[in-house]
Amino acid sequence: MSLLLLLLACGLTCLGQVAQKFAVESWRDRPSSALQKLRSGWLWLALFSLGLGLLVWLLVLQRMEVGVAYPMLSLNFVLVTLIAHFVFREHIDRRHWLGVALVIAGVLLLSRHA
């Protein structure tokens, strides 16, 4: 249950990051006033997911040691790399994949203390 909450917090944070990216890109494509920018659905999705992610994170901290849970948030680097590769078709070099493997190994080791 604690691990599921942690994954949910990571997923929400990641969704927030992607929504931020879409919000900024939509502003770049269509120059607009500050008020129009505020009406971007992506911006609100980003704020909503980051806010909900923080609330879920507080529940994670209620159940898990912070010294274990906080480093496990580095899963975000893994999630974002996978999204960059499979959704945005960005090139990921071998050194980057090696880093992803190291992060996953570390998170697996830490998850035994969840």
């Binding site: 010294g67 274990v68 480093p71 496990m72 580095s74 680097f77 880093g99 992803v100 493997a101 190291l102 992060v103 996953i104 190994a105 570390g106 998170v107 697996l108 080791l109 830490l110 203390h113």
Partner: peptide
């Protein structure tokens, strides 16, 4: 070890 691996990975 887990924390060290994560930092090395990042």
């Amino acid at each position: 070890l887990g924390v060290a691996l994560v930092i090395l990975g990042v």
